[in-house]
Design a protein around this nucleic acid. Structure first.
Length: 176
DNA sequence: CTATTGATGGTC
DNA sequence: ACCATCAATAGG
């Protein structure tokens, strides 16, 4: 699954970069938590497009969220990047532990919607896959309305990373 | 046209 | 636990 595979890779925007430590998969029109479930609109049309592009959307009147489109053309699935560890080009102490925080931190907005994640200034760099033991999975965040799909274990994160969101996410973060 | 609602984060 | 703040929907 692509969401799992993206952990450990590096998201770059211009000079700024972070290591992906938390992702969620949204797996098609049948996934009630996926934006594609309510049909194709101007906002979510990119989900049906070719893979490897950015899907950036605005939510709650103030936040941007970044996704990578993962499926072949005609199939609507994507991976929401929820948390990064700062790597480069960022002020000391920048926190990227949340989908909206990381967009703010890297300067990602609707202006980047649709960009090619291989060839543009917004790109994802490959990295070796992580060891099995360092990755955990669980239910996605903020999708309680999605019935059966709310409980699906489609969220992946790097255990113990400071870049994993805490909003509603759970992990032992005070292991002394 | 108006009303509702989020794949959130910061503050109270 | 509540609020900020708005685009995309649903409904009239």
């Amino acid at each position: 699954m692509v969401a799992r595979a993206l952990l450990g890779k590096v998201l770059v925007h211009g000079r700024r970069a972070g290591r992906i430590v938390e992702t969620e998969a949204y797996v098609g029109t049948h996934d009630l938590a996926c934006h594609a479930a309510r049909g194709r609109t101007r906002r979510n049309a990119l989900l049906w497009g070719p893979p490897g592009r950015a899907y950036v959307y605005f939510i709650y009147g103030m936040h941007w969220c970044f996704n990578a489109v993962t499926s072949k053309e005609g199939v609507a699935s994507a991976v929401l990047v929820r948390g990064l560890e700062p790597l480069a080009g960022l002020p000391p102490g920048t926190r990227l532990d949340g989908p909206a925080l990381l967009c703010r931190g890297l300067g990602i907005t609707g202006a980047q919607n649709g960009l090619d994640l291989v060839h543009s200034s917004l790109r994802i760099l490959d990295a070796p896959a992580l060891r099995r033991g360092s990755v955990a999975r669980g239910p996605r965040i903020g999708v309680d309305y999605a019935g059966e799909w709310a409980a699906a274990p489609l969220r992946f994160w790097v255990v113990g990373s400071s870049g994993v969101s805490r909003g509603s996410g759970r992990q032992p973060r005070s292991v002394r």
